[in-house]
Amino acid sequence: MPVAPIALALLAVALAWPIPLWLAAARWPRRAPGLALVLWQAIALAGGLSMIGALLTYGLLPFGPDLLSGLVGFVSAVADGTAADRAGLDHLAALFGALLLGVHLLLNLILTIVRTDRDRRRHRQLLSLLGRQDPDDPSARILDSPLPVAYCLPGTWGSVTVFSAGLMRLLERDELRAVAEHERAHLGQRHDLVLVAFRAWHASLPWFPVAYRAEREVGMLIEMLADDRALDHVDETSLARAIALVGNAGEQSGLALTERATTPAGTLQEQALERIRRLSRPMDALPTATRAAIVAAAAGLLAIPTILLIVPGLS
């Protein structure tokens, strides 16, 4: 009875469906967004690993008792032309599937990175022609637009934070500070890397509802993490007011309304509300034991498929 392929397949199903749905519905991630983010990354990595691993270990069964000897056996069988005789069609199909899935995921990651980078470069060029330097902060740029917007543009050759003239008119000093610290946290903690990875995952499995939920949830956790960092410098009320004012004003300006139709219902909108709720009713930090359990769960998720793959005798 081959243990590894069956166990890996069961793990892959669990990580593709019930576990991410449970995590997306859980309330505790709002109390510990950093830990939840670690868990999401472990789920995505372990999910991919067990999906490919299940196919690979099953496909290699006729060639050897474990992954390494199976691979060696398969390569030599291919070399002397006996691979098709030794393995049934099901095993060869599984090997082909593993290869296809691996290449598909990798290509999508590369494509997403290239696309994101191209979009950012174009945006940076526009910024350098249209924005002016912030006199108080050399890494920030100011756009002469009446719309109140603030964002950061991460980049390999230095990142930029952008504020619009409309934002600076709308917000008080402490609220502006809250926005600036929030954006600085995004850049400092390299949230863009996590987002690109989940964007790629979603792009490779567009028909897969969990991938969409995961990308959305990760986006929200990142905002909460940046909010928490901003709270080191400003109080909850200033930050909550800044979120509400910028959100409201963006609505009232009436611009970008045409885009609304194409925006999936309530992604950023719900996020803004959720963030303000979180700031207006601060929750206790998670108990240490719970935090440790979450870290252990993330480590376990990565360890189990790795062990199933490499330990001999399990196939």
Partner: peptide, 14 residues
Amino acid sequence: DDRQAVLARFVGQV
């Protein structure tokens, strides 16, 4: 929301 990967906006419209 895939814009968020290119640039991280402080808050979206509501």
